[in-house]
Structures are given as C-alpha cells and as structure tokens.
Computed example of a mutant assay.
Amino acid sequence: MPLTEAGIYAAALRLIDEDGVEALTMRKLATVLDANPMSLYHHVPNKEAVLRGVTRMVGAQFRTVTLEDAPWQERIRLLATDFRTLAHRHPELMAYSFSHQPDFIQHDDPFWTALTGIVAAAGAPPSEVPEIAALIVAVVIGVLAAELNGSLHQWANLKPPGPETDGRHEPSDAAPGSRGAGAGTAGPDPDRMFRLVMDTLITGLESRLTAGRDGQDAGRR
C-alpha cells in the first residue's frame, strides 16, 4: 500500500496514543508502516512536521452538536465540553500541542469557527470577537493542560495555610506532570471543576456584554 501523508499521520497518532509523543520516532513510524525510513521523508521533512500534521488532522475532526436556537451560554458550554472530550480522547497529543504548538488552532478550524460564531451571537462587538474568543481558548486550554498532566488534581488537594495546617499539606501519590498523576488519590471531581470553570467564564462574559450594552445606551442618552 503506497505511503500517503494521511496514512503517516494516522499511524503516528496511534503510536502517540499508545506510548506518548516522546516515543514517536521516524524509524518506529516506518516500522509500523512497513516502509523504509527514508521513504517517509518524501512526504514529511521531520518529526515536528509529523506532529503538526497529526494535530491538524485531529483538529479538523472536531465535531460538536449544533444548537442554533439554544442560548449562547448553553452552546458555549457544550462546545467547550466537546473540546474537552477530544482532549481526553488523545491526551498525549493534546497535552503536547497545548504546550509546544501555539498555532495548533487555526482560523478555519471547526472549533474556532464555532466559538467565534457563538461569541458573535452573544452580542459581542465584531471588533472584540477574536479577542474574547482567544481569551476563552486560553482559559479552557490552560485548565485542560493542567487536568491532563495531573497539576489540577495536585493543586486542588493543597490545603490553604491556617491554624490546622500551619502551611503544610499532605503529599500527593504522584508528582505533577507524571502520567496518571493523582490517580487513586481522593480529590475534587474533574467534571465538576470544569463546569465551575465554564460557569465562571460565562458569568464574566455576561457581565462584560451587559456593561458594554449599558455603556452604549448611556452614550445615546
């Protein structure tokens, strides 16, 4: 079967899902594809190009339910939840993309297209839509990155300094950044924490949009 870029990216994604980004090499990829390692370079120049191609492929496959008649708050919550589902479907790739590929979301990606459409439908001024959408992406990705590498669980188990703790906290079972960090350790429900993040984002955006409309109304008077 002839080599193609799509076939290379699909094989690379399987390797990443199984063993992580660090384990991916051009030689191992060629072995999986039953191809000469040098033949891969006719399609992709290096491992970094493979990773970018895989990320683009996964991003293009993002799907969410379209609720055109639903309130924008419900639509943005569903969009973020579906993006989180995608991140957990390919945690190794997405964790790498969040920290190493600042341009992994492009203007024509399904996620960005849907998000900017929702922000515009919420009533944001057209000039502010990209900025507001970018901030939402930054917050959601930051939370997901911390969730995937175990940091969120670690931080949520820290006790605030006080008379009972005297600034001390119980050690976690796993170090931050380790695969499966926090597994087996009691802590807050990550689904509930993500809902809290979205509640906070939505409340903040509602307040911002309301203040903007009130300011416009005041200016007309």
Rank of each mutant, 00 (worst) to 15 (best):
V50A: 01
A122N: 09
G167S: 15
T210H: 07
G177S: 05
H153A: 15
M38T: 11
P126T: 07
I136W: 10
Y41Q: 12
A183H: 07
A134S: 12
A120H: 12
R52S: 05
M38L: 07
I16T: 01
L144Q: 12
V143P: 02
R208W: 06
V197T: 15
W112N: 02
F62A: 03
D82E: 15
A60L: 04
F83K: 13
L201W: 04
V50R: 01
R56Q: 09
H169Y: 09
P126D: 13
A174M: 12
D17S: 05
W112D: 02
P125E: 13
T165E: 11
K47P: 02
V119H: 10
T116K: 11
E5Y: 00
D214K: 12
E18Q: 10
V21H: 03
D17E: 07
M1P: 09
W155I: 14
G187M: 09
P171Y: 05
L209M: 10
T55Y: 00
V65E: 14
T203F: 02
R77K: 14
N46C: 04
L158P: 03
A30Q: 07
L144C: 08
L24G: 02
P176Y: 04
E5H: 01
T165C: 11
A186N: 04
S151D: 14
A122W: 06
I132A: 09
E164H: 06
T66P: 00
G167R: 14
P91M: 10
D189P: 00
P171M: 11
I136Y: 08
L201M: 15
F111G: 06
P160L: 14
I118Y: 06
R14Y: 00
A186Q: 09
N36Q: 13
D103G: 05
Q216K: 10
K28E: 15
D109Y: 02
W112S: 00
A175L: 13
R89C: 03
P45Y: 00
A121Q: 12
F104D: 01
T25L: 08
M57Y: 00
P71Q: 09
H90R: 04
V54P: 04
R84I: 02
I16N: 02
D82P: 02
L79E: 12
P125Y: 03
L79D: 11
D189E: 09
L205Q: 11
L93Y: 03
A35G: 06
P160M: 08
G150W: 05
A10F: 00
R84P: 08
H153I: 03
K159I: 06
A183L: 13
T25C: 08
L148V: 11
S151T: 13
A211P: 00
L29V: 01
G204R: 08
I76H: 02
W112A: 01
A49S: 05
G182A: 08
P102V: 03
A35S: 14
